[in-house]
């Protein structure tokens, strides 16, 4: 599957060689322009140090690799953040839409199927993309490993449980949480896709402060760290999976 998609990508690369624009990829990955076209389209982009993508240099557990994307240096100009793992069978990790009090910073755990470049592309109001990159080495198999959640007796009863806390950080606060969900990606035999596909952080009045579209490259029992201006409590987290189950949590 991966080999086939790589083959397609390479074929595309040969055909479109003349259409290249923008910066040279600091990771010099043959997959960059394939994903650039897919996720960024025709829009201008640059590799930008203000998008800080942190991940360990190697995956100790390919099923749970922590990734942190911090675009706070681009401040209020940020409209959207898209992240992907180039060599995963399902590359797309998430698309994040922070607004107002929610900082353009997010941390979560992902799966990696093999050593891969990771990208975070940040769209600013002027229509340009700013790209941060890193590379993760891995023994692999994180996307096709059997589910640890499903191995637990009675896991269904815990579906959608959220554990977390609010932490003061300077004038702002962090919300950190873990959601009980298998996040099945459909790549393990006999288990169809079953994953949380949408999350919204809402204010006390119900207004959406940030929304997040998730894909099953996100780890099972997903963790999430968000950063907010101010230390007022009262936000709510709303979640929905692809089977229509909705879950809510309050901070």
């Amino acid at each position: 599957m991966t080999i086939r998609s790589m083959g397609l990508a390479l074929g595309w690369l040969l055909l479109s060689n003349s259409a290249w624009a923008g910066d040279a990829d600091p990771l010099q990955s043959p997959m960059w322009s394939f994903h650039q076209t897919r996720f960024l389209g025709e829009a201008p982009y640059e590799f930008d140090d203000r998008v800080v993508l942190s991940a360990p240099p190697f995956a100790e557990d390919s099923r749970q690799v922590p990734v942190t994307i911090d675009a706070t240096a681009l401040g209020q100009e940020v409209v959207r953040i898209v992240a992907w793992a180039e060599l995963n069978p399902i590359p797309h990790i998430f698309t994040f839409f922070p607004t107002g009090p929610v900082a353009p910073r997010i941390a979560l755990n992902i799966r990696v199927e093999q050593a891969t470049p990771i990208r975070a592309a940040v769209l600013t109001r002027d229509g340009a993309w700013h790209v941060g990159s890193t590379r993760i080495d891995a023994a692999g198999g994180g996307c096709t490993a059997p589910s640890a959640v499903r191995a637990q007796e009675g896991w269904e009863e815990h579906l959608g449980e959220v554990f977390g806390a609010r932490f003061a950080q300077g004038d702002g606060s962090r919300l950190r949480l873990r959601i009980a969900h298998p996040m099945d990606n459909g790549l393990t035999a006999g288990v169809p896709e079953f994953f949380i596909e949408r999350a919204e952080l809402r204010g006390g009045d119900g207004a959406v402060l940030a929304s997040l579209e998730l894909h099953p490259s996100v780890s099972e029992n997903p963790t999430l760290t968000l950063q907010l201006d101010g230390r007022d409590a009262g936000q709510q987290l709303w979640l929905r999976d692809n089977n229509g189950n909705e879950f809510e949590a309050a901070f």
Partner: peptide, 23 residues
């Protein structure tokens, strides 16, 4: 340290996180 954080962080989080869902 990278490995130990991978192994142990969830256990330490579990001591601080509390149930916050509406169920």
């Amino acid at each position: 340290l990278v490995r130990s954080v991978s192994h142990l962080y969830p256990k330490y989080e579990a001591q601080v996180f509390r149930r916050v869902d509406r169920r």
